[in-house]
Simulated assay, not measured.
Amino acid sequence: MQTRSIGTSDLEVAPLVFGGNVFGWTADERTSFSILDAFVDHGLNFVDTADVYSAWVDGHQGGESETIIGKWFKESGKRDKIVLATKVGMLGTRAGLSAANIAAAVDDSLRRLKTDYIDVYFSHLDDDKTPLDETLGAYQKLVQAGKVRVVGASNYKGERLEEALAVAKDSGLPAYQILQPEYNLYDREGYETDLEPVAQKHKIAVVTYFSLASGFLSGKYRSKEDMEGKARGSRVEKYLNERGLRILDALDEVAKRNDATPATVALAWVIARPSVTAPIASATSVKQLESLAAATRLELSTEDVQTLDQASAWQK
């Protein structure tokens, strides 16, 4: 499996990221451990989480996902096999990107993760109330202290990302080397028009979230009845339209040609995008993980990519 670089850093990652939002939410501790073990067994190495995961669940405070990963590191001894990403800025008790908040939040995350360094530390959400040089200056201190290796940006607009890169260059501060945008076969326009040009211009790595459109592109939601009683059902409803169903038909066609699942094909399509380093995807069982890992081995033909591109075309 060919690895890919994160920006200009020496971090090398497999072309699939495991999304740790499920840990402590739809995957309990034991299941999470077995998924992480299987993930490493597949030769994969990039795990993404955030301090806010899973604060949206009743009775949770945030930090649940990081805590489970930390316990797994301690029990398995596999910290050195993982490129670890977490994020700061969206947890209610640690909101924003001020220098003081970043300094406190990173120590919270390190304690939960039972590690002394984070490979990739993301600004989870742009904070227009805090000067960019304050945020990047805080990251510089973390890099100098050995707590963080690379910094990244999630949920930024192209213009703000350009601005942050200019501030970093002019002030000699750490530049964002990796971007985390929403991107999948359905949600294409925002990334392709606004962020992709910036990422390519500055050689920024890109890891995409909602790579399976909250599970819609797995093909398991084809009617409103399919969504009833599902944790992610409400997120999927917006995809159930003519274009969404056309994409599912194309996924079925390409999956059949390649003896693969729709989820595998949908991720392989993202992996094949030249500007993308790796899609982020989650699983709640080792069996589900198999179809995600298979995407790193599936090389879509030109015809396959064209079929999917045409079905998912967003230009009017």
Rank of each mutant, 00 (worst) to 15 (best):
M1R: 03
M1C: 04
L16Q: 05
F18Y: 08
G19S: 01
N21F: 05
F23D: 02
F23H: 03
D28F: 02
E29H: 01
T31D: 05
T31K: 00
S34F: 02
S34K: 15
L36T: 00
D37W: 13
D37K: 04
D37S: 05
H42T: 09
G43S: 08
G43Q: 11
N45H: 00
V47M: 09
V52L: 10
Y53A: 01
Y53S: 00
A55D: 14
W56D: 00
V57R: 11
D58K: 15
G62I: 04
E66C: 00
T67E: 13
T67S: 14
I69V: 01
I69C: 02
E75M: 11
S76A: 04
S76V: 12
G77I: 06
R79K: 06
V83I: 14
K87H: 05
V88G: 12
G92W: 02
G92V: 02
R94L: 08
A95I: 13
G96N: 08
G96H: 12
A100E: 15
A100M: 13
A105R: 09
V106G: 07
V106H: 05
L113C: 07
D116H: 14
Y117N: 14
Y117R: 14
F122R: 07
S123P: 01
S123W: 13
S123V: 06
L125E: 14
T130K: 08
T135M: 15
T135D: 03
G137Y: 04
G137P: 09
G137R: 09
Y139R: 11
Q140R: 15
L142P: 08
V143I: 15
Q144N: 14
A145M: 08
V150R: 11
N155F: 09
K157C: 13
G158R: 05
R160W: 11
L161M: 12
L161P: 02
E162P: 00
L165I: 07
D170H: 07
D170V: 04
L173F: 01
Y176M: 11
L179C: 09
N184G: 10
N184S: 14
D187R: 02
E192N: 12
L195I: 06
V198Y: 10
V198P: 11
V198A: 04
A199L: 07
K201T: 12
K203T: 13
Y209T: 05
Y209K: 03
F210T: 11
S211K: 06
F216R: 02
S218F: 05
G219L: 08
K220N: 07
S223N: 10
K224I: 08
D226W: 12
M227P: 10
N241M: 12
R243V: 07
G244R: 04
L248N: 05
L248T: 06
A250N: 05
L251I: 03
L251C: 06
A255I: 09
N258W: 06
A266F: 01
W269G: 08
V270G: 04
V270Q: 09
A272I: 06
S275C: 07
S275A: 15
V276G: 09
T277P: 10
I280P: 02
T284M: 10
V286P: 02
L289Q: 03
S291Y: 15
E299H: 13
S301K: 03
E303A: 15
E303I: 08
L308I: 04
